[in-house]
Design a protein around this nucleic acid. Structure first.
Lengths: 160, 160
DNA sequence: CAGCGCAATGTTATTCTATAACAGTTCCCG
DNA sequence: CGGGAACTGTTATAGAATAACATTGCGCTG
């Protein structure tokens, strides 16, 4: 169940993610404020990574705040609650693509169209855990990001 | 053969890495200039990630150049030739810990002492490749970085 | 050896990313 | 209604990276 590249009903996908966010926040006793919700909505527009400043520009256009901390605080919140993920390689953020699963996902990042998919992490994490154990290393958090080409961009013969 | 955490003859380790760098450059027909060599030496001082600006400070102290591009160009060169790696999660760089093997390694990063080890990548990459294939994604380059505690810091009961 | 061309360096300036610090506001709970 | 915690607004600054352009060094080829 890789989430991201497959065609799907994206309007439903967004609605579900937003509803899930409401639930998560209610259960955690935290507030999904206007700015936070709006940042999530912006990230949910498509399965693509956005930089904090790109998001900030959008917020500014909408009169929701013009300073970097506004965007960063909302993004930190979303990441903390598993509603979005940070893509280290891009210094950017994506909405979580499969609400409901507690996870440390692995990311497939298309270098042509910038789409980001989340793939099943378990086998990779197992292999990583085993390598770490051999080294006597205790893993807290693993980051797995693959650069490459998504199915659509392979078909289009993209090189960049 | 995880490289990094185990105690070892580090002087020999550095010498070998430097000799390897000479070879690689000679074979590739590129020049290991003063700045490039010096940056590699600085990275080789220990198995730890250094930011570009930390390296730049060292270069400045030694009169080898004071502007960011000096450090970035040398680092790009080293990374391009497999003599150093970029740690995305830290926006930092480490010397390659096992010269000679063509590789896309996986990194184990101690959050207490900042040591970085390279662990065998094959099983992790295999699992990742399989997940990518299921998604129809063509992987160019995979980044795997695990945060946690190295053996020494676990023993010391570190929390930060 | 002259001169061409490429690789590498030096430098200025700028952009992008991220956070510290502090003042003010809102909201919930008792 | 009062107190505290969470949230927002804003200023300022730190940190990471690159664009752009002038200059120098080096090797090759004619």
């Amino acid at each position: 169940m890789t989430a991201g590249f497959d065609p799907h009903d994206h309007a439903a996908c967004r609605r579900a993610a937003l509803a899930h966010a409401e639930t998560v926040c209610r259960e955690a006793g935290v507030r999904l404020t206007d700015t936070r919700r709006r940042v999530l909505e912006i990230l949910l527009e498509d399965h693509r990574a956005l930089g904090a400043y790109a998001i900030l520009d959008r917020l500014r256009d909408e009169g929701l705040g013009a300073q970097p901390p506004v965007a960063y605080r909302a993004l930190d919140f979303l990441v903390r609650h598993g509603l979005a993920h940070r893509i280290e390689h891009l210094n950017a953020f994506v909405a979580c693509a499969h609400p409901g699963r507690g996870h440390a996902p692995i990311f497939l990042i298309c270098r042509s169209c910038a789409a980001v998919a989340e793939a099943p992490a378990a086998p990779v994490m197992a292999a990583l855990g085993s390598a770490a154990q051999d080294a006597g290393f205790a893993v807290d958090h693993a980051m797995v990001e693959a650069d490459g080409l998504c199915p659509a961009c392979q078909g289009a013969g993209q090189g960049a």
